[in-house]
C-alpha cells in the first residue's frame, strides 16, 4: 500500500516506541439498530499475523462487530483503526480496497452465478493482477478451478465455503474476517476449513474469526475474545480460554 502522506512516519508498521502497532484496533465500539444496542462498547485488537477468534452465542454481537468493521452499519460510535487509519464510518467498498474483507455467515455466495463470476466479484474493487490472484486461488482450491463454469448453487456446503474464502482472497486482503465458517457444515468439512484457515495464516494472512464452535476455533487461533450480549467479557490466549472454567462450562460443554 503505497499510500499518501500521513502524520505518523511509521504508519502501519510500528507504533509508538517501535512496538508493532496492531493491524486492527477497535476501541469502545457501540452499534445500535434503532433502539436496540447490539454492541455496547467493545474494544479489541488484532495483530499482524494472528488468528483471533470471537466466541459467543447467537446474538452476542459477533456478526454486528465484523460488519461494522467492514463499514456496513450506519449507527456506529467509538473508534475503528485499521493499519493506522481511522476507518469508522467509511464505506465498505473503500475498506475492501484498503485490504479488509469479510467472508459472510452462511457463505453468501451468489448461487445463480458461476464460480468464476463469484471469484471475480471478490476482485471488484481491485481488478489489478486479477489473473494472478485467480491462479493463486485455484492453487489453494483446485476444486474451484474444476468447477469454475458451474453455477455456485451446484456446489456442496464445503465447496461453497471454499468459494467464499477464495472470493475474499481475490480482493488481496490484509485482514480476512470470517463469520461462523463452521455453521451448517459436516464435522469433517469443518476440520478442513479450519485447516485451510491455519494454512492461510501460515502464509501471512491475518484472520479475525467469529465462531460458536469454540473448541475447534480456539485450537486454531492464537487469541480469543468471549462476547456476551454486546460486550467482551473475557479475553486471552487460546490456551488460557480453553482452560478457563467459565468458558469450559459455557462453550466447551465440559
Amino acid at each position: 500500500m503505497a499510500s499518501s502522506s500521513t502524520a505518523a512516519p511509521f504508519r502501519g508498521n510500528r507504533g509508538v516506541g517501535g512496538i508493532p502497532a496492531p493491524l486492527l484496533s477497535i476501541t469502545s465500539l457501540c452499534v445500535s439498530y434503532g433502539h436496540i444496542r447490539a454492541l455496547k462498547g467493545v474494544s479489541l485488537e488484532v495483530n499482524r499475523g494472528e488468528i483471533v477468534v470471537l466466541i459467543g452465542a447467537n446474538g452476542a454481537g459477533k456478526t454486528t462487530l465484523l460488519e461494522s468493521v467492514l463499514g456496513i452499519n450506519a449507527q456506529v460510535t467509538g473508534s475503528v483503526v485499521f493499519d493506522g487509519k481511522s476507518i469508522r464510518g467509511r464505506a465498505a467498498d473503500r475498506n475492501v480496497r484498503a485490504g479488509l474483507c469479510l467472508v459472510p455467515e452462511g457463505r453468501g455466495v451468489f448461487a445463480s452465478m458461476s464460480v468464476l463470476d463469484n471469484l471475480l466479484l471478490g476482485a471488484h474493487n481491485n481488478m489489478r493482477n486479477v489473473t494472478a490472484h485467480l491462479n493463486r486461488v485455484y492453487e489453494w482450491f483446485p476444486i474451484l478451478r474444476k468447477r469454475r463454469d458451474q453455477v455456485a448453487r451446484t456446489l456442496s456446503g464445503g465447496e461453497r465455503q471454499m468459494l467464499a474464502i477464495g472470493r475474499a482472497l481475490m480482493s488481496a486482503p490484509r485482514l480476512i474476517m470470517v463469520d461462523e465458517p463452521s455453521i451448517g457444515l459436516a464435522p469433517i468439512v469443518v476440520n478442513d476449513i479450519f485447516a485451510i484457515l491455519k494454512k492461510l495464516n501460515a502464509e501471512g494472512y491475518t484472520i479475525l474469526l467469529s465462531e460458536q464452535n469454540a473448541y475447534k476455533a480456539l485450537q486454531c487461533a492464537h487469541r480469543g475474545y468471549v462476547m456476551e450480549t454486546g460486550l467482551v467479557t473475557l479475553a486471552g490466549s487460546s490456551e488460557r480460554l480453553l482452560n478457563d472454567p467459565g468458558v469450559k462450562a459455557a462453550y466447551l460443554g465440559a
Binding site: 467492514l70 474483507c101 469479510l102 459472510p104 451468489f110 452465478m113 471488484h124 474493487n125
Partner: peptide, 14 residues
C-alpha cells in the same frame, strides 16, 4: 447481477 440476486450480500463483498 450480484445486486439483483442479493443486495445485502453484494454489499458485504464491497
Amino acid at each position: 447481477r450480484a445486486i439483483a440476486e442479493d443486495p445485502s450480500g453484494a454489499r458485504l463483498v464491497g
